[in-house]
Design a binder for these strands. Structure first.
Lengths: 171, 171
DNA sequence: GCACTAATTGCAACTAGTCGCAATACGAGA
DNA sequence: TCTCGTATTGCGACTAGTTGCAATTAGTGC
């Protein structure tokens, strides 16, 4: 495959302009149609599943949940719809430490992730924490970093044995 | 994929601090045996292939090259041997933007990678460039970052210039 | 309500990689 | 040189995701 494959770097949702979540879901059919795309039962099902999801999900989990609602769900349809929804800015995908795909639903702010290789927990990484790095890439390389795709692997405080709390663990 | 093979662009390997590569390879059999592991023909083949490799390779490419030398090569054996060699520190693996595994042979310094989503090129990211981020993770979260596993995705200078889609997309 | 056409789906085959298990064979010790 | 324990291999099945293609169908125009 080529790096420019089906997964384009869509323009991310503007962070400040916090979306009305329910509104965002409701407008999907017309937003699709505006672009000559279609609103199908399969897409509606996935959107319903997504609307009940908070935080991160893997593609496999989404396929699973769709299949619970409709046993005839086909994985390739789910993954293709996920691509379309990502282009619409409703979800963002990134890769966990193991390289597996993960999706964020309606990311309110662009953020990256930190994963602990040992316990497998993950944390959101906000722009402030890596702002200097982003700026340095911009200046030194002219490189525009896609924060939502940033995955930082390593060992968390707990696993290093330093004691302390695993704040805001996601999983 | 059009641009396969090793792509090391931008920051070149540190010229002075070169290891004695042949020495590192030569000591593998005994290093394995020291740990109660074994030196097999399959492992020797993979090590030979690796010794002729510079920069980054995907697992698939390695399987391919081993198969060229020995058509009976089994993928799972290659991947398992890769794990063993990583434990020995002879290679490091990371994940490209598409989540696919990539291996570095004999990494001279711990480094991360920057990938351009559009042209697919990649660059090494040395510790100086992300030092502040590493330190901040350490202090604020007690999190020890594994730099060699860091993949920064985004758009490179050339693609931002050529694409002309405007810097307005940056958030 | 009907026809048309291009977007979408379902399917099957494929890529990349992992895992469990029985058979093989490395290499330490006799 | 032979024996033996166990690391490793080969294999087949499986997970996660992608792709090409023919059949289906959403949605526009009449």
């Amino acid at each position: 495959m080529s790096a420019s494959g089906s997964r384009r770097l869509g323009v991310p949702p503007t962070p400040g302009a916090a979306w009305d979540r329910s509104g965002a879901w409701a407008s999907i059919p017309e937003r699709l149609r505006e672009q000559g795309l279609r609103w199908t039962p399969q897409r509606r099902l996935l959107v319903e599943v997504l609307a009940q999801t908070d935080g991160h999900v893997t593609g496999g989990e989404l396929v699973e949940r769709c299949r619970e609602a409709d046993t005839t769900t086909i994985p390739s349809t789910v993954y293709r719809t996920l691509d379309v929804l990502e282009e619409l800015g409703l979800i963002r995908h990134c890769h966990g430490v193991d390289g597996r795909e993960e999706f964020h639903v309606l990311p309110e702010t662009e953020h990256g992730h930190a994963y602990c290789n040992e316990c497998g927990r993950s944390w959101d990484v906000e722009v402030e924490e890596v702002g200097a790095m982003l700026a340095s890439f911009q200046e030194r390389r002219g490189f525009e970093v896609d924060l939502s795709h940033l995955t930082v692997a390593g060992r968390c405080r707990d696993c290093r044995g330093a004691g302390g709390t695993g704040e805001a663990a996601v999983e």
